[in-house]
Design a binder for these strands. Structure first.
Lengths: 171, 171
DNA sequence: ACTTACCGTTCTATTTTAGAACTGTCAATT
DNA sequence: AATTGACAGTTCTAAAATAGAACGGTAAGT
């Protein structure tokens, strides 16, 4: 599959993956959330090749996740900072951190602790329902087709995706 | 960077990315959360090459995200179902869906709607603080080194990662 | 004059992925 | 009895992405 194809899918997972679904992008964004802003800072703390870093930053700018802002003239230098769209990735980042904290830590414990400034305590992120405020879990959720869903041909059975749908179009 | 190197990082983002940080894995998991369980079902709805699908499933089983369970003898056939560790990826999946819903939808609107069975309403996921229950945003969080953090050499300045730390070890 | 900081670009070698075909078992159909 | 189709992979070659190292250019510091 080509990357461009992912963006076109009628699926929010696929379209998000088109932006953040590779090894390096999420690590770059981690650095952004840790207040890193410059090419050298990203490169040296990640060990990413300069070539790829340049490509990824360009892509993130094109997607509107980062903004490229000059911080000096001659030679022209730019910083990369998160846009609101980029800041909105925070729940994804925190979910990832939390899963790693729970399932992938070694004996020494978690590498980072997070303090909620508002209440002053170290916290874990909890995903809750916007309507009732209760925590969400996979089994407590029902999925319905929305207005942007693929039209399913009349008479198609729930499981015949193999025959009636084109590939990579599940949701 | 090699994939194996990611697992070893003292960073929960890197270690989680070692599991889910590629194009296909999250799409496979999307299918899992949509109750798909079999090789053919994954392959036909995603359009992933059979070769890669086999490799990804094996990897997810090795990481304990999926369990491979026989559902018939002769020929021996297996289903892939989410373990608890896999089910715990749900907040990541929902965060990704939500970001896509907000920032990547086309004019037709979101492809899927989610109903919270408990309260019966269509909802969006909201990330909240486990301690006070308030919503979390990037700017409202302070980060502290935890017990599993890399030891920072005495005298190192906050920004000299380039010189005193090895690559890919930021957190 | 020489070194360092910074932000990239360019090049070749290696690794990953795409795409298609093939293997093998068994059930159902002709 | 022979053929077809469902299913779960494996194997092959070509194309694409990534690694790794070197290079380019501006400017400041020593």
């Amino acid at each position: 599959m080509k990357w461009d194809a992912l963006e076109e899918e009628p699926c929010s997972v696929a379209r998000t993956i088109a932006v953040i679904g590779d090894r390096w992008t999420l690590l770059i964004l981690r650095e952004c959330f840790l207040r890193k802003r410059r090419f050298e800072a990203f490169q040296s703390s990640l060990g990413i090749t300069r070539h790829l870093l340049a490509a990824r930053l360009k892509k993130l700018v094109q997607f509107g996740v980062l903004r490229r802002i000059p911080y000096q003239e001659s030679p022209k230098r730019y910083e990369y900072i998160l846009t609101q769209k980029g800041l909105d990735l925070y729940p994804i980042m925190m979910s990832i951190v939390h899963w790693g904290d729970v399932h992938m830590v070694d004996a020494r414990g978690r590498p980072l602790l997070h303090e909620h400034k508002k209440c002053g305590k170290m916290f874990d992120p909890v995903m809750t329902c916007s309507e009732c405020g209760e925590p969400i879990e996979a089994k407590g959720v029902h999925v319905h087709p929305g207005p942007g869903a693929r039209k399913i041909p009349a008479g198609a059975k729930p499981d015949d995706g193999a025959k009636t749908r084109k590939p990579v179009r599940a949701a």
